[in-house]
Amino acid sequence: MRFRMAILVFFLCAWVSAYAEDSLEYKVKAGFLLNFIKFAEWPAAALGDKDTPIVIGVLGDNPFGPLLEKTVQNREVDGHKVSVRKYKQAKDAREAHVLFIGMKGEQLAGALKALEGSPTLTVGESDAFIDAGGMVRFVIRDEKVGFEINPASAKKAGLKIGAQLLRLAKIVGAKGE
């Protein structure tokens, strides 16, 4: 029993430490999601008036846990409140201004397809995210969180990404484009 207890504690610790690592990474990524809002520009219709909050959505797997809600809590951007919403269906997520998509493969492609024509800044972290037609992909460079941006797909969606943000990112294009 004692042995079982020790193993349990070990695994527990390992999980906790892994979570802790994950949680620091995702805390940064959550901040980035918020900050993307500041360097991107939406069509006026998409933003609405001041009472309309800016929505950061999460589609598919949510690696942030509660971090995203914590990050945006009480934050305003340009006078707009920021809120976090979770979506099951991609078609529902069209209202989000920034959308983290925790999907891969066929599922991701379908979601992106469903979002076509919507002024939503799509963010992901899977390897093929850009090739699938995503706009911003988190990467780990030199043990730091960075990102790749495909400005062409953003433009297709009617979004303008600030030059400064582009300067920080690795600019990429989707395969076949």
Binding site: N35, K38, Q164, L165, R167, L168
Partner: peptide
């Protein structure tokens, strides 16, 4: 203003 992004995204190099 040119440094806002670098500051925001914690990129001292930039």
């Amino acid at each position: 203003s040119n440094c806002t992004a670098a500051l925001t995204f914690d990129d001292p190099q930039a």
